[in-house]
Each structure stands twice: as structure tokens, then as C-alpha cells.
């Protein structure tokens, strides 16, 4: 295939699926949450973190709109040497790892329909010292658009790595 056959990059627009960086931070040492607020004007989100570590062994999870009600349903395949699957119909968060550890190597969560007044679907893949392999997909049952996305840990962050939020314009 010649170079002339490579499609030109999209310039974006209302109907594009181009993700743009909304915000990126290094978690503050000793903090237990990283929360992006005042999200608006997007229809899709991609929530990523890379090379973050925890001060002590713990797990991480995601919540939206500070909602800790039982509104998160998902299936998960996770493990290190052996993969196991599980289903959670009414969780108060989207759990990342089933095991625990200090190294949260990285994960990517893609959330669709965040500006809709109905359920939002999400898919995720990642890796940590708790679960070398992780695949998650599910639904966040909420009518309100997502304006806040939070990464929580049962431990505290060590002040390294990156947590970033990307979005596709509405």
C-alpha cells in the first residue's frame, strides 16, 4: 500500500470520535482520591492512569458524580496466573482489581453516553500488581449526565504516575 492510500487524519467535528486531553495530573502524595469535576460538553470519556503506585497495599476503583449508591453493574475477568470471572449487579463503585498491591501499572476506562439522561456503558482494561490482567464492562445506572469522575483508592497514592481524562466533544 502506498503512502497516498493512507487516509488523512480527521480534523474533528461534532460527529468525530477524536479524543482530546481534558486534564492530566500526578496524584498528590498521601491523597486517597483524584477527582475531575465540572465535566461538560462531552459525550464520551476515556479515563486513564499510568505508573501510579500506592503507599500501602490496596485497591482502586472509580465512581461518577460522587455517587456511592448501588448503581454500578459489571462483569469482570481478572487474574494473574489464573484468570477468573465475576459479575456484580449492584456495586457502589467500579472495582478495578480483585487482588491488592501497591503498583497500579495502568488502566483505561472508556465511558459512553455521558451526556445522556440514561444508563452509561463502560469498558475497561488494565494491569496492576493485584491483577496482571483485567477486563471489565458494564453499565452505570444513572439519569444525570456525568460531570465528575473520580479515581479512589483504599490506600493512598504515592505521588507518582499520571491520571488523565480525555473526552470526545458532544
Amino acid at each position: 500500500m502506498g503512502a497516498s492510500q493512507i487516509p488523512a487524519a480527521s480534523t474533528g467535528g461534532a460527529t468525530s470520535d477524536n479524543y482530546v486531553l481534558i486534564s492530566s495530573v500526578t496524584p498528590t502524595a498521601a491523597a486517597s482520591t483524584v477527582s475531575f469535576t465540572s465535566i461538560s460538553g462531552y459525550r464520551k470519556l476515556m479515563f486513564r492512569w499510568l505508573d501510579t503506585t500506592l503507599a500501602t497495599s490496596g485497591s482502586v476503583n472509580i465512581t461518577f458524580n460522587s455517587d456511592t449508591g448501588a448503581n454500578y453493574a459489571y462483569g469482570k475477568v481478572a487474574g494473574t496466573s489464573t484468570m477468573s470471572n465475576s459479575q456484580t449487579q449492584k456495586d457502589t463503585k467500579i472495582a478495578l482489581n480483585t487482588g491488592t498491591g501497591t503498583s497500579q501499572l495502568g488502566a483505561t476506562y472508556i465511558i459512553d453516553g455521558i451526556n445522556n439522561s440514561g444508563p452509561k456503558t463502560f469498558q475497561a482494561f488494565g494491569s496492576s500488581s493485584g491483577d496482571t490482567n483485567l477486563l471489565v464492562n458494564g453499565v452505570y445506572y444513572a439519569s444525570a449526565p456525568i460531570t465528575t469522575a473520580t479515581l479512589n483508592t483504599t490506600s493512598t497514592f504515592s505521588g507518582v504516575g499520571t491520571v488523565a481524562l480525555y473526552g470526545v466533544a458532544a
Binding site: 495530573v25 491523597a31 482520591t33 483524584v34 477527582s35 475531575f36 463503585k93
Partner: peptide
Amino acid sequence: MSRFGMEINVETGEVTRVELPAVVDEAPAE
């Protein structure tokens, strides 16, 4: 032990420290 989080307002870029409840929502074993 007091817990805190960081909050990033993506519209303004402002980063603030917020105090969190002391309870950790660790789920009980199923």
C-alpha cells in the same frame, strides 16, 4: 486518620484539596 483527595476543576484548571470521610468503603467478603 484524616483522609483527603485532590479535585481538579477541568474548566478552570484549579486543583484543590478536599477532606474526605474517614471510613473506607472496603466491601465485605462475598
